[in-house]
Design a binder for these strands. Structure first.
Lengths: 242, 242
DNA sequence: CACGATTATATGTCTAGACATATAAGTCAA
DNA sequence: TTGACTTATATGTCTAGACATATAATCGTG
């Protein structure tokens, strides 16, 4: 039998190049406007032919994550649409890209055996352990969103010992577990006592809710609910049509 | 000197192949499930190398227009409702795709000179005429969404005489004015008296708001606000990662 | 300094191969 | 009929080149 390696099964080379770059963009390590390495530099780094690098970059361009300019190079695009809004897993990147100061605060963290509700939320059947995290993100010291997250320890055992008091769980996950698929559900609720206090709004005020469920090759990773003040936050998505 | 030919300037070969196939899919000539010619057949038809054909097909696959299966071939995908949620301009299609009966009701229609608020909402400066429409969409006879729409008559003069008592303005526009670009803003509000009555919910209940602003080569067409009951409606978006 | 011409360079497209791999389809035995 | 094995084949990935083309940078001239 074969044990899963640390970095899991290696996809093809061009996919690895694509994922490497995508990760740096999504985590904000390479911010909008940043010039990514030239093709010939990536060729040298990965020891492959130019066509392989080109394929990776072409796909990123098709996904509107980067913009390619002849003679100048390839540049990270500013998040502007569908992909950005719903793909962004890193709140820090979302807030700093708005030109605001990012703040983070851990409210609660519990390690427990998965309850029936937990299993339902994660979409798993077997009872295992989970980490439940509640935290708050702020922009310019104003509450921006509260996050209520569940991580399946069967898929991400390291999360049991990770320190979420400094690093938001979204960022931590992004750096430790490359995501493959996600589903978002957007809805609206009115703030209850707990939410109102966390977001510093009045009870009964509208809130935008984003539920994101993330998995990786049929393996559940995390389920997160983000609550935004409904009257101050906007999700903007822009499309080009045919 | 050169006159523009009928088909305009020829793009690169792989783009032509891609466009040829895309057209047949979008016109329905090749319906969902249809098997696209094998790569080697396209190679023969276009007289190019396999890599060129492969690039065209790979891009179509990345755009989720086709699905590629080893040994079997490439097949036209059925338009998936998932990531299309925000693209869908036709409420009837949205509701019937959920397997529910669609209902439509015109609540109000006014033709007027654009007020300052109208101009602001449409993002135009010149004072012109607009049509303001309020209507309701229902699913299985339950209110599904109320629509509040403004159409710029300077861009769509025919809208002045269109009969919106039977056909929803969204559908009418879709058939009369091909859209090119749209911007969506998603937020949350609580229902006021008027909204509560229209959606048959209680005052203060949460509502999901989608503001869609549509234009066509820098020309404003329409601005629409859709209000959904926040606790019953869900916007689902699903993505595949690297 | 302003502006046009030249050059260098990064990306854009393409080829003619190669081997890998998943899997539909066929073959054969229990 | 069913299951296990084999084979054929279409796609998946990759290479080491080539020439095209747009354009940032540089150079030269008025």
């Amino acid at each position: 039998m074969s044990l899963a390696t640390d970095t899991a099964d290696q996809p093809t080379l061009y996919k690895r190049i694509r994922a490497d770059i995508e990760k740096r963009i999504l985590t904000g390590e390479w911010p909008p406007g940043h010039r990514i390495p030239f093709e010939h530099e990536l060729v040298a780094r990965y020891g492959c032919s130019r066509m392989t690098v080109n394929k990776a970059l072409s796909e990123l361009a098709q996904a509107d994550l980067i913009e390619r300019r002849r003679r100048a190079g390839s540049f990270v695009r500013r998040p502007q649409h569908q992909s950005a809004v719903l793909k962004i897993a890193d709140m820090r990147a979302e807030i700093t890209s708005l030109g605001r100061a990012y703040g983070y605060e851990l409210i609660g963290r519990k390690l427990r055996a998965a309850t029936a509700a937990d299993r339902d939320r994660l979409g798993v059947k077997k009872a295992g352990k989970v980490v439940a995290i509640t935290c708050r993100h702020s922009a310019d010291n104003v509450p921006f969103a509260v996050e209520d997250r569940l991580i399946d320890l069967a898929s991400v055992p390291d999360a049991a010992t990770a320190d979420f008091s400094r690093e938001p769980p979204g960022s931590w996950l992004l750096h430790h577990v490359p995501w493959t698929e996600a589903e978002h559900t957007i809805s609206a609720i009115v703030a209850d006592d707990r939410t109102a206090e966390a977001l510093d709004i009045t009870v009964g005020a509208p809130c935008l809710v984003i539920d994101r469920y993330t998995w990786r090759s049929a393996r559940t990773i995390t389920a997160v609910r983000l609550l935004y003040p409904g009257d101050s936050h906007r999700l903007v998505a822009r499309f080009k049509g045919g």
